[in-house]
Design a binder for these strands. Structure first.
Lengths: 112, 112
DNA sequence: ATTATATTTTAATAATTGTTTAACAATGGA
DNA sequence: TCCATTGTTAAACAATTATTAAAATATAAT
């Protein structure tokens, strides 16, 4: 289970329009990710501003990066998102995770 | 589907240790909720500080309140949490919600 | 080696956020 | 009515956050 402080950090990282947009873009691009410049172009934000936001997302563990030539590719790290959602649903829904996860309740019912 | 701006607001509301603690406390106390003073005592925070945080949570739609005598009871609003989690899993996991919801994948597999 | 490309870092600044203290409502009981 | 209790609001301040422009780093191409 993620610690509360880490969850706060992840929530804070996503609680900003540009960073939420970055994260969604990265998720849509899968494990290969996207180069910083591509993201800048797509989101019409300056490289310096994005670099600042990448650092915030990285520090929260929500994205990872790898260097390829002179490009830096960023990619979503699903594990932390999974952990965050798990924390929210397991701790924030009185133990009844299904109540917090639309669609899950149906599945549970079908299985029962 | 919740709008991006509303999701950002809800994420920001939860991205603070005291407010995350308030929210979890309220969820654990169900629909009746808790009086502001009880919460203050439990979290060892000043009434004024809490009032400030209640406003943030209310404005994000994460909690509701009702007056009962001279007490004000706050209660979690599950709908917004559901919407937030749905947004994160539906938009942040390349359409494969199961990849973002631990436990759900198993259910999906069993059903298939 | 020099130059161009891709990205990060630094410094400065504006805007937002969280806490504290004190003053202000609103309700209920003596 | 008067007082105590419960909670909110307002003002002031410190701390954090986001943006910009400029300088710095790193890789690649000529």
């Amino acid at each position: 289970m993620m610690k509360s402080a880490q969850v706060v950090k992840a929530l804070a990282a996503l609680a900003q329009p540009t960073r939420l947009a970055i994260y969604r873009l990265l998720v849509a691009h899968g494990p290969e990710g996207m180069a910083a410049g591509q993201i800048a172009e797509k989101l019409k934000a300056s490289p310096a501003t994005l670099s600042f936001h990448f650092k915030t997302l990285s520090h929260a563990g929500l994205v990872g990066s790898r260097q390829d030539g002179r490009f830096v590719y960023y990619a979503a790290n699903f594990a932390v998102m999974n952990g965050m959602v798990a924390y929210l649903t397991e701790n924030c829904c009185g133990g009844d995770a299904a109540a917090c996860r639309p669609g899950t309740k149906q599945l549970m019912a079908e299985r029962a």
